[in-house]
């Protein structure tokens, strides 16, 4: 067994929270540069220019790109040869989030009671932690600070087998159309198909972590991604919803085996500030 002290997890999560909120990954920046070249609307190009300038200022000054520094969604891929010592995993991640959000001057956006009091927890905890146990003795941590502007525009639908790929296409495009300017386009569209409803939503979220525009390895799924992207970019929504050709930078579909009677489809929208950062211990 390889021992990892949870103090290292704390430290890593702290750093990843700050880095994710202040610095866009290179593939996201490249996709935005490409969008600015392709956009036909002059206002759209100018808005994408502001988006890129904002990213440059944020990176240079180590300042959050967007004031909604999100709820910290944390994926932990834990090698089964690892033994954690010195504390518990959720506690370590939360301590990392607490420190990252305080020391990075990030906004605290979590309320304890979602229905009634809605009091702010004051330190952005608890994080939403998902653990996957895999062979090996590495520990991989991915932090995805997710804002509510784009998250609120997502949707889940329990399609049935007879709906087929066209049903998926129609539902995803309708979801993006209904979202309009609200999720801060150009967006990345994460789609999860299969499993039961909880699996579909988690797949849709994980789809946001894929390198922007990288196709699904299954050619049929990749074709569906291209078809949906083309539909979406014909909607006219454009950068910031103020009209244009580039409404989405990419559509990423992830699939999973499902029940003979089911075809759940989840759509998770990601604003252009597609923030995430990862580290391997």
């Amino acid at each position: 067994m390889r021992e990892i002290h949870v103090g290292r997890i704390q430290e890593t999560v702290r750093d990843l929270c700050i880095r994710a909120c202040c610095e866009l990954p290179p593939d996201v920046l490249a996709a935005l540069e490409d969008a600015r070249r392709r956009e036909e609307s002059p206002l759209g190009r100018e808005l994408l220019g502001q988006v890129l300038e904002n990213a440059a200022v944020a990176s240079r000054e180590n300042m959050p790109l967007c004031q909604d520094t999100g709820l910290a969604v944390v994926f932990v891929v834990l090698g089964q040869g690892v033994r954690l010592v010195g504390g518990d995993l959720q506690g370590a991640v939360d301590e990392g989030v607490r420190r990252g959000y305080a020391e990075g001057y990030l906004r605290k956006s979590v309320v304890r009671d979602p229905i009634f009091a809605r009091g702010n927890t004051g330190d952005n905890t608890p994080a939403s932690v998902y653990v996957e146990v895999v062979p090996g003795d590495d520990l991989r941590i991915v932090v995805l600070p997710k804002g509510a502007g784009s998250e609120n525009m997502g949707a889940l639908k329990m399609l049935v087998p007879a709906d087929g790929p066209d049903g998926i296409r129609k539902f995803v495009v309708e979801t993006v159309e209904r979202a309009g300017p609200n999720p801060c386009p150009p967006i990345i569209v994460g789609v999860g198909v299969g499993g039961m409803m909880e699996r579909a939503t988690l797949l849709a979220k994980k789809a946001l972590l894929r390198t922007v525009g990288a196709p699904n390895p299954d050619p049929a799924v990749a074709d569906l991604e291209r078809a949906i992207l083309s539909d979406i970019n014909s909607l006219g929504i454009g950068p910031q919803g103020l009209g244009g050709r580039v409404t989405a930078l990419a559509v990423h579909i992830e699939t999973w085996p499902t029940h003979i009677a089911a075809m759940p489809v989840a759509v998770n929208l990601q604003c252009w500030a597609a923030r995430h950062a990862e580290a391997v211990l």
Binding site: Q50, V51, E53, V57, P64, L65, D68, G149, C184, L242
Partner: peptide, 13 residues
């Protein structure tokens, strides 16, 4: 009025 969503660092200036 509409401001650019996500341009928080730029707008802070």
């Amino acid at each position: 009025f509409i401001a650019v969503g996500g341009a928080g660092a730029l707008l802070a200036k």
